[in-house]
């Protein structure tokens, strides 16, 4: 996987709590058997009307958020189904970072497997970002994973927390399977002492 060290990009807001994975990628698009090509369906039912017209009022459809690569949203982001199609869609659409006050477990985990950085900030800090994106067209953030700092051009600096292992995982672009296979002997030994049932 590609290593993640620094990222700079435009910020787009999705101002809702409990954004679930059914909303991120509706199930009618889960039938592909590849990992790619899901971006066009991201937030599909929020972006398009029933007859396929663009819903102008949805944030991601507004010109000023075009090309955004950092998504800001509210609490419990990514709840619901375990579908990894959700992070695939987010990544394929162009997002590299998701910021929210909290994330659902499986989604959070799935992000790291796909080189997406999910950042947990306090409700107040997230609110600040929402206000900044509303006020300023082209609002951008700089994310420094090595220092764990988010900053903008106006002097905002937020230190964020991240489990050290997960940080290294992204920084080095590690591959889980290769990591585990290093312990082949231990796995085999464990299997040997298992009873037959």
């Amino acid at each position: 996987m590609e290593a993640f060290k620094q990222h700079k990009g435009l910020v787009a807001p999705v101002d809702r709590v409990n954004v679930d994975t059914d909303a991120i990628i509706p199930k009618q698009f889960l039938k592909r058997i590849e990992r790619t090509g899901f971006g066009q369906y991201l937030f599909y039912e929020w972006r398009f009307t029933l007859d396929g017209k663009v819903k102008e009022d949805f944030s991601l459809n507004q010109n000023k958020y075009e090309g955004a690569s950092i998504l800001v949203s509210r609490a419990n982001f990514g709840c619901g189904s375990s579908r990894e199609h959700a992070p695939w869609a987010i990544l394929d659409y162009g997002f590299k970072v998701v910021i929210a006050p909290s994330f659902a477990d499986i989604f959070y985990n799935n992000c790291f497997k796909n080189g997406i950085l999910p950042i947990v900030l306090s409700e107040e800090e997230v609110e600040t970002l929402f206000q900044a994106t509303a006020k300023q067209d082209g609002y951008a953030l700089h994310i420094d994973l090595e220092q764990k700092i988010i900053s903008d051009n106006a002097g905002l600096q937020i230190q964020f927390d991240l489990d050290e292992h997960r940080r290294q995982y992204l920084l080095q672009g590690l591959d889980d399977i290769a990591l585990t296979l290093k312990y082949e002997e231990k796995i085999a030994a464990y299997e040997k002492q298992q009873p037959a049932i």
Partner: peptide, 16 residues
Amino acid sequence: IGTSEVEHVLATQCLH
């Protein structure tokens, strides 16, 4: 688990 983890379990019968 997610699909990457499905692959991981298929390959190793283990999980992080």
